[in-house]
Design a protein around this nucleic acid. Sequence first.
RNA 1: GGGCCCGUAGCUCAGCCAGGACAGAGCGCCGGCCUCCUAAGCCGGUGGUCGGGGGUUCAAAUCCCCCCGGGCCCGCCA
Length: 648
Amino acid sequence: MDASDPLSKLVEVLSTQLSELLGVDPARLERMIGPPPRREYGDLSFPLLRFSRKANASVDAIVESIRGKLWEQGLGWAQPRFESGYLNIVFDVEELGDEVFRLLSAGWRPKTAKTKNPMRIVVEHTSANPIHPLHLGHARNAALGDTLARMLRARGHEVNVRFYIDDVGRQTAVTALGFKLARVSPKELASRMGVKVDYAVGWIYAVTHNAIEAVSLKSSKANGPEKMRRMEEAIAILGRLKEQGDHQVFERILEGIGGMEDPQREVSETMKRYERGLEPEKSLVRMIVDAVLEGFRETLSRFGVAFDEWDWESDIVWSSRVGRLIEEARKSKYYTIHKDAEAIDIPSIIKELVLEDPEARESIKLPKALEIPPLILVRSDGTTLYTTRDIAYSIYKFQAFNADRVINVIGADQRLPQLQIRIALLGLGYRKEALNMLHYDYEIVRLPGRRMSSRRAEYVTLDELLDMARSRAEYEVRARNPGADERWVEETAEKVGVGAVRFSLVKPGRLKPITLDINRIVDLRENTAPYLQYTHARASSILEKHGEINYLKAHSSSLEDEARRHLFIEALRFPLVSAKAADDLAPEDLAVYLLRLADMFNSWYQKDSVIREEWEGARHAKAALVLLVKSVIGEGLRILGVEPLDKM
RNA sequence: GGGCCCGUAGCUCAGCCAGGACAGAGCGCCGGCCUCCUAAGCCGGUGGUCGGGGGUUCAAAUCCCCCCGGGCCCGCCA
């Protein structure tokens, strides 16, 4: 594999050579070569002493061998030396500068280093229940999933992005029942309520769910304070919902549910009929879900998120993939009966397959001493469970794209079922699928005080959040650009707002629970996607004022200046940083790197003017440096789904 | 009851997986910087028993054990 930029090439040569000398896996060494904690030590460093103890060669011999190899490979600008346990590499920035100027003049710009092992990867994300608008939890999911897809593509993988439409479960059945009683279509209701269609559906769902809850509680034989509490809660929620929506429709649903002897049974019946593809449920559910998906698409496209495929859960069922899977399970030695229902014997699979298979044990990380219960496949009424359908869907994802790997972006609250699914796949003979399916989990987003709840219709929607961010941005943009074209102001505000939201959802580590502070997410300073966009705009402005860069006039010796030198080298690290972030599935690493680079640029900017530089050789070199930084921030932002701006 | 995740500066977090070269950012707070490439910026100051205790190691925020606090999960829900 030929690395196309100087630093990638350097690291590749170093890791290959060190690997030969030390007898250690080059990939492992590669990730240990990085900038030292203090600049005085050098530009790159590697903890050599840790490995050389076990190697035959002396440290001096190793360093000399490296020096020779670098020379031979045309990387003479990188000089190795040994210092207190570390192999430190110091760059001759003048030589490196000439090399980079040559590349820049030929049109090269830093890009994520390409992987040596391109794979076919499916990323499934967002997959929100299609019965209410997308809210903040989904926003985190979508931002992570979409960024992952962009990173992996930039790294050179073949990526296929899928949305799984959960239209088969209980929640869609509740919604369908609600619409049946409401005698109104989602679109009519939406226009009556003056809201997006997915909001109208979310309202119907919440009304119907709480009406059913109230009626069921009333007729239940149980008694006591818990029942009273839940009763009161349902009634309070209904009161609030009534005020928010259409009174006539509200009454129809309440009367309808109130008149049912057993509303829960009606829901089950609807669910059963839809799963069998019977009319009128089939058309009704599809019509409702289609309407919600229209709302999803509108929001997602604004958010910069696109999908390659939309998979209907019902299609997986109707195409008999689920039926075939259940047949396979029945023939399997791990088929069992649990609580009178058909199930897969997860404990036995663990004992016989996972623990006996080192690769599987490594890949499927079992919690210690946790008893994972058998996985029930079919309800006693004959309908399937979500996990069963998901096993079939998992197999489908691998087949449909001929995938090497499948990444599912799903909340951390689903760890157990996701684990069960992988174990079940292994037990049913789908070893490749089980081992190459990854649950990319992230912690939930909470509202201050309580969790978001679609049952209570209590959520901050993604649309609302984007609107807030945009209006905040619009105020700022207008203040800074008096008299600017109105359309430009609005477009810029949208890009700043969307960027701020996406960045803020991806920058914290995914396992940090986010307690939603809207002001914080919308704050343009702290959230720093706008800071990066601003830095990019500053760079653009300099280049515009400077005019065309003449690389023949640029003097690389002027890069020896401390601040310029560090900025230059830091920008050149982009291909490596972005590659590692992609391999680690860690968008936050890329985000943090970009912020650091922007900090360096802004500090430098303040004290070392480009266009007022008198010496032509330095001015063109500095302009080239600005171009380099601008290209890196631009490329990095695009990978994070944030639009770089030339003016703001 | 069991499992998993999180606990680092007043606040939000990085560093932990692959232990080492002075614990880092941002926000906040205090004080400075626009006749000069965009002040959404920059410079300086302030601020830490790395939740607590034990252990492994020449070396621990990082690995192991115990404990404490917060969250999530343990359904014929999704």
